[in-house]
Design a protein around this nucleic acid. Structure first.
Length: 364
DNA sequence: GACACGTGGTC
DNA sequence: TGACCAAGTGT
């Protein structure tokens, strides 16, 4: 099949407007025969899942500085990788990242498969990421379909069917445009178009390289596409979090189970989080003081309000939950954001207490 | 197909 | 302040 005029038009636009990203090889560099490092393409694609480019940049820089190759990453300690991922969210990605790196070393001789099907077998690599790595790193004519591509196709072909029902149709339409020439650049071009021109709100149709063929623009429906099924409301869950500080400055932390919310991450001991107030369950007997302010955080599917309790603990403390982390070994940046918010409140309280301010002395 | 799974930016 | 949104995958 011949490549479409739309594909050529978009590639011409990409040659002029490709965004600069540390994992990317520019169109000019590609012409000079340069290919991106599959390890960096894979790492960036996993980090970019449901995440913005701005949020990923710093993490990508730190990961590649610390683990320059897939062999380095495969040899890393789990806790080190989880700590480096802290704050980026969707922590199953980090756990699968390690599994994938180790599978590449153990089963593929340290090289990433270059086909979509080969990549699909690896942990954390689904239909989107398999197509993206295959296209971008190996220039295979695979069709990438992410949220950007769905939006661009829904508008280009004026598809009124709501997502996720429309997914199969949009994938088919996208496949019909994927060129045999420069599929890697093309994949990035459609996503760049969606990220910079064909945006969810206020699309810049006037400067779009596809403004002429775009049916939604002609129909005036572009800003309303793609349609989406209404979302469920988020319930509020509540719970307790206990921030204990030993006299020598060590903090009482706990490693969360590998599965489930914030799986594998460091956190504060505490209650379960539920829609009804759970029972208090301090990790040890102590003079726990509840802070006046709650830690608030919103996850994908619920709002969380945590009551924070703090206490000074003796040097011979023997808690029934968690373990002490030396004050020099503890970095708040190793915590997922919800837990870091708890720490921020507790740290302020410990500080004002030390200064003799705000402490409930029981005399007053 | 439905749901669990994070976070920070934007309006 | 709150709802929506972003380069999805696993179960």
């Amino acid at each position: 099949m011949r490549d479409t005029p739309q594909a050529s038009e978009l590639l011409a636009w990409y040659d002029r407007h490709a965004r600069d990203m540390p994992w990317r090889v520019s169109p000019g560099q590609r012409r000079a025969g340069q290919r991106p490092d599959p390890y960096r393409v894979w790492l960036s694609e996993v980090m970019l899942q449901q995440t913005t480019v701005a949020a990923v940049r710093g993490y990508f820089h730190r990961f590649t500085l610390r683990w320059p190759t897939v062999a380095d990453l495969a040899a890393a300690e789990d806790t080190q990788v989880m700590a480096e991922w802290a704050g980026l969210g969707y922590y199953a990605r980090a756990r699968n990242l390690l599994k994938c790196a180790r599978a590449v070393m153990a089963d593929h001789g340290g090289r990433f498969p270059d086909t979509r099907d080969g990549l699909l077998d690896l942990p954390g690599i689904g239909p989107y990421t398999a197509a993206a790595i295959s296209a971008i790193a190996f220039d295979q004519p695979e069709t990438v379909v992410d949220g950007n591509v769905e939006r661009v196709m829904a508008r280009l072909f004026d598809v009124a069917t709501p997502l996720p029902t429309a997914k199969a149709e949009l994938t088919h339409l996208a496949a019909g445009l994927t060129p045999r020439d420069r599929p890697g650049d093309y994949a990035q071009a459609v996503m760049d178009l969606g990220a910079t021109i064909c945006t969810p709100r206020n699309p810049a149709c006037g400067i779009c390289p596809w403004r002429t063929p775009c049916r939604a623009r002609a129909a005036g429906t572009a800003p309303d596409l793609p349609r989406k099924l209404p979302k469920k409301p988020k319930p509020v869950r509540v719970g307790y979090a206990y921030v204990g500080r030993r006299t020598d400055g060590a903090w009482l932390l706990e490693r969360r189970p590998d599965s489930g919310l914030l799986g594998g991450m460091l956190g504060w001991p505490g209650s379960t989080w539920s829609e009804v107030q759970p029972a208090r369950n301090p990790p040890m007997l102590a003079d726990w003081q509840m802070l006046p302010e709650e830690a608030r955080h919103t996850f994908t599917h619920f709002h969380l309000r945590l009551k924070v309790l703090i206490a000074d603990l003796p040097v011979d403390a023997d808690p029934n939950a968690g373990h002490f982390v030396d004050r020099h070994a503890f970095r708040p940046s190793d915590l997922p954001t919800a837990m870091r918010k708890v720490f921020d409140l507790a740290r302020d309280a410990f500080t004002t207490e030390g200064a003799g301010i705000g402490k409930d002395t029981g005399h007053g």
